[in-house]
Structures are given as C-alpha cells and as structure tokens.
C-alpha cells in the first residue's frame, strides 16, 4: 500500500502526471472502443433482414420527425412477460440498418418492434388520423396532416447517405428510388413487381385509402407494416442467437 501513500510524488511531477493521465484515458477509451470491434459477433447471423425500401425509409423518417420514439419503443426485451405480449424478443440484427435505431426507452404507448402485420392498413390510417376513432381510451395525438403528399425529392439522397454509413443499398436501388417508392404505394403493384424483387417481402398497395396520392401516411403505414416481419423465426436456430 505504500505506493498509494506517495501519490503526492506523482501529482507533483509533471512527467509522471502526464503518463498517469494518458494511461487513464487509454483504459477509458479502450473500454468504449473495443466492443465496437466485436460488433460482428454481437449481430446475430439470421436471414431476411434487408434495407428498408424507399417508401418504408421515407416512412421511417416521418416516424423520427414526428417523435414517435418519445412514446413507443421498438425493443422487445428477453423477458417472459414481454415475449408473451409482443412476440419474439428483438435481435440486434433486426435493427442493423437503422440509423439511428429506434429502440427507445419509454413506453407511454405499446412497443412497436413487431407491429407489422398485426393490424390492417385501414386500421393504421384511421388510428393515425384520430386514435380515439378506434381506441376510445387512447391518449395518443392525432396525425391527420400525414394525409398530405409525400416529398419524394430527398429519398435518393437519404439512401446515398445511408449507404455511406453502411446500409448496402446498390446503385441500382438508389437510381430507382422514386420509381420503387411510387410503385410500392400503387394499386397495380403485385408480389412480382420490381419493388418486391428489389426489397423481398415488401408490402405493396395503397396504404391510406387514397390511391391518387402517395402521402406521408402511405409511407408511415408501409414502415409500420414491415416492422419485425423480416426475420422468419420458425427457421432460426435458437442456439445460434443465444447471448
């Protein structure tokens, strides 16, 4: 212990003090940085997770813009009660293309990590316009302004930016962004459409009940309907995703 009694010697010597500070900063930095180098082993290897289609990505931007994350989490934790209510716990792999992720930490409303496919498009649209129309006891605000046309001018740029941070959009996908976006929200789209070829299992069709306009509502509902649906958990080897 004697060395600790002589801390004054380190503290009053500029060289030792500098070395001591450097060592402390190095340890602190390593603790923060090293886990990032092991991210490959953190992300579970599961099939099906793909980048969001342009329409879904636009909807995701609206989700962030409107601050949905303030009340809704997208993170089903590995607890019995959560899994019973919401479905399979969330995997790191499922939000690997989320920038920024929407795990959130507050649940004024329910978790949305697996809301995709749970309700119909019609329900989502009604509920977003005025939640009390379908859930009388709801305290969620209404978002009727989402029925306005979607601004599609920025989507290709957004996808390019996402590509820079590691989302594997191809040049082809970025080039076709607006075409794919409009196709996904059109009544003519089918399971064989180009947008579904580029983004497997994407839900197509008119989402908001107004096929004339591709609205922000179309985009947001398309995003909500894909949440938690990309991984088919019947095919997942559970020993491989155990942490």
């Amino acid at each position: 212990m004697s060395v600790f009694k002589h801390h004054a010697k380190i503290e009053t010597n500029v060289f030792f003090l500098a070395v001591g500070i450097l060592l402390t900063v190095i340890v602190g930095g390593l603790v923060e940085v090293v886990p990032l180098f092991t991210i490959e082993s953190t992300i579970e290897k599961v099939d099906g997770v793909r980048p969001y289609s342009p329409l879904e990505q636009a909807g995701r931007d609206i989700y962030v813009r409107e601050g949905c994350y303030n009340c809704h989490s997208q993170m089903i934790r590995p607890f019995k009660d959560e899994v019973e209510r919401y479905g399979h716990y969330s995997l790191a792999a499922e939000s690997k293309y989320d920038h920024p992720f929407q795990w959130s930490s507050k649940r004024t409303g329910p978790d949305l990590a697996r809301v995709g496919g749970k309700y119909t498009n019609d329900w989502h649209t009604r509920h977003l316009i005025n939640p009390r129309d379908v859930v009388p006891e709801s305290i969620m605000p209404g978002y009727p302004h989402l029925m306005r046309p979607l601004d599609t001018s920025k989507i290709a740029g957004n996808m390019t930016a996402l590509k820079v941070v590691g989302v594997p959009y191809t040049d082809e996908q970025i080039k076709n962004a607006v075409a794919n976006l409009k196709e996904q929200a059109s009544l003519e789209a089918t399971a064989d459409s180009a947008v579904v070829q580029a983004y497997p299992k994407a839900k197509v069709g008119d989402f908001d009940g107004n096929p004339q306009v591709v609205s922000e509502m179309d985009a947001l509902v398309a995003y909500l309907q894909v949440l938690g649906t990309m991984v088919d958990f019947t095919t997942v080897d559970h020993t491989k995703i155990q942490r």
């Binding site: 590995p78 607890f79 019995k80 899994v83 716990y89 559970h238 995703i241 155990q242 942490r243």
Partner: peptide, 13 residues
Amino acid sequence: SSRGDLANELDIQ
C-alpha cells in the same frame, strides 16, 4: 445468458 434464462423460463411455463 439472459436469452438462455428466458428460454428456460418459457420451458417451465
């Protein structure tokens, strides 16, 4: 393992 614990709990349930 938290996920392993969950699997056990679900088995018991």
